[in-house]
Simulated assay, not measured.
Amino acid sequence: MCEESICVGAVAEVKIGRHLVTVEVTEILEHGWRVRSQSSGKEFEVSRIDRIVSEPENPAPECRTPKKKLSLFEACIAYFRTQPRDRVLFPICCKSI
């Protein structure tokens, strides 16, 4: 399943135990999605969506995959890119990132 195609408002099917439940995506989280069951109305978090039943007519601007956390190395590179060359402090410590 292509996670980039899952938007807020999409109707999908998720597997809960051995049952397939039809849900509506209400929020994109860091490690999955918050969904609402169409049959019971309960909200819960899922990390995997099996199948998209229908896309929303007007996709929300937050139609993207959740951001993953940066590794320490990637955070260090991002820090160096934001600082002017003459102001970069050596040695760098984790607190400054």
Score class of each variant (00 low, 15 high):
2 C>T: 11
2 C>V: 12
3 E>P: 07
3 E>L: 15
7 C>H: 04
7 C>K: 01
7 C>L: 05
7 C>R: 03
8 V>G: 03
9 G>Y: 10
14 V>E: 01
15 K>Y: 08
15 K>D: 01
19 H>A: 07
22 T>H: 00
22 T>P: 00
25 V>Q: 01
26 T>P: 00
26 T>L: 09
27 E>Y: 04
27 E>F: 04
29 L>W: 01
30 E>T: 11
31 H>W: 05
32 G>Q: 02
33 W>S: 07
33 W>L: 13
33 W>T: 05
37 S>F: 00
37 S>L: 00
38 Q>H: 11
38 Q>K: 02
39 S>P: 00
39 S>G: 02
41 G>I: 04
42 K>S: 10
43 E>F: 02
45 E>P: 00
50 D>N: 11
50 D>G: 02
51 R>S: 02
52 I>S: 00
53 V>E: 06
55 E>K: 13
56 P>D: 08
57 E>V: 13
57 E>Q: 08
59 P>I: 09
59 P>V: 04
60 A>D: 14
60 A>M: 07
60 A>V: 04
61 P>K: 13
63 C>F: 13
63 C>R: 10
65 T>V: 15
67 K>M: 11
67 K>R: 14
68 K>W: 12
70 L>K: 13
72 L>T: 08
72 L>A: 10
75 A>M: 06
77 I>T: 05
81 R>T: 03
83 Q>C: 09
83 Q>L: 10
84 P>A: 09
84 P>M: 07
85 R>G: 12
86 D>K: 09
88 V>D: 04
90 F>I: 15
92 I>H: 03
92 I>T: 11
92 I>P: 00
93 C>K: 15
96 S>K: 10
97 I>E: 08
97 I>K: 08
